[in-house]
Design a protein around this nucleic acid. Structure first.
Lengths: 192, 192
DNA sequence: TTTAAAATGCGTCAAATGACCTCTTTCTTT
DNA sequence: AAAGAAAGAGGTCATTTGACGCATTTTAAA
């Protein structure tokens, strides 16, 4: 049932069969209905989360109730609230399912143990962290300097598959623009 | 001459005298005049950079020539272009000196070696990386959700010391707002 | 000290943006 | 299949923002 995860650990992380088995042994599987919350602000993030199928979002809720999406997390990607996970302190972000999803959860201690036992997993983990840093930087530059239209184009180019899976209001929330502005941009580009 | 650095490695990183000595042995000192570029877009980032005294900025230049500051780096802080450093590929960011500064540079190989030899340095390095990730996340949320006025207030609260050291146009460039808007905000808050 | 350059404050104006609202369409769920 | 909820298109309008230009002050360098 964890075929997808198995294959991922094999091909992307480069784990041996034995290490894949060890990694699977420590994991909990969960099926999420659309809309299910996996982590709520204020809770403690106790797991590393891998999405085998479906789509999650990682977002902050502002004082006025507005939502701001930090990350869409589709199949074959990872998510968590790093700071909450590292220090086991209350989370500032929320994670929920945009689509019905199949996810795998590693409790922090168990994952930590795996990192010790499996150097290849450790190396792969670091790679993921690095990529995350690079893309955060890029996202920040974009947020600082790009026009709404440029942001939208970047999104379309970077995540062409998500466009049809994510409601527009969430894309707006990810880009930091209003739904109205997003609508105007799309209308303008539809004319060409 | 590297008293500041020595003390920093001792107190903040928790290195033993012997490890401090080893770390210092691998470092190059440089004095920078105001305005000196330490890294230019397109160059390869070959060093970890520690600012013992002064103030650097890490920024991107957009296609239209406008500058967008990712990070101010005052004394006792570190900076580099991570992606360029990790992969030794052309940098996307620039680093220069806002004030005359005293900096210390570790060539990548040498620093890598130190990380192997000195576990305490390795642990400290990880801590710095983590903090960087947390603050990037926070910055992104702020960029997405805060009004210009809130961004300015956050800046003032987070870096009270920098306000008088950094020209307003650079603060505007850091916050992702125009100098005009920043001026209006300051005028409004001066009235109270 | 003098001179040049940079920083900043401020006015005007046009454009961009978001808040609010309504109506229609599309999904969900029962 | 039917009812209810959510999504999104589109209109109007007030506000915010930035572009441009100019005057004044401050800072840096000769």
């Amino acid at each position: 049932m964890s075929l997808i995860l198995e294959q991922y650990l094999h091909e992307k992380a480069g784990l041996s069969d034995a290490d894949v088995a060890r990694t699977l042994a420590a994991v909990q599987a969960r099926s999420l209905q659309r809309g299910t919350m996996l982590l709520q602000e204020g809770q403690i993030c106790r797991y590393k989360i891998f999405v085998a199928d479906g789509l999650l979002r990682n977002y902050a809720v502002a004082a006025d109730g507005s939502e701001h999406i930090l990350q869409f997390c589709p199949e074959l990607h990872w998510t968590l609230d790093v700071e909450s996970y590292d220090h086991q302190t209350p989370a500032r972000f929320n994670i929920d399912a945009i689509e019905a999803s199949e996810v795998y959860l590693w409790p922090k201690d168990a994952f930590h143990q795996l990192l010790h036992e499996i150097p290849a997993l450790e190396a792969f983990s670091r790679q993921l962290v690095s990529r995350n840093i690079y893309s955060s930087r890029h996202r920040l530059v974009s947020a600082l300097s790009a026009t709404p239209e440029e942001k939208y184009q970047e999104f379309v180019n970077s995540y062409p598959g998500l466009l049809s899976r994510v409601p527009l209001r969430m894309i707006a929330s990810y880009l930091g623009i209003s739904l109205k502005t997003l609508g105007r941009i799309r209308q303008a580009s539809a004319r060409h």
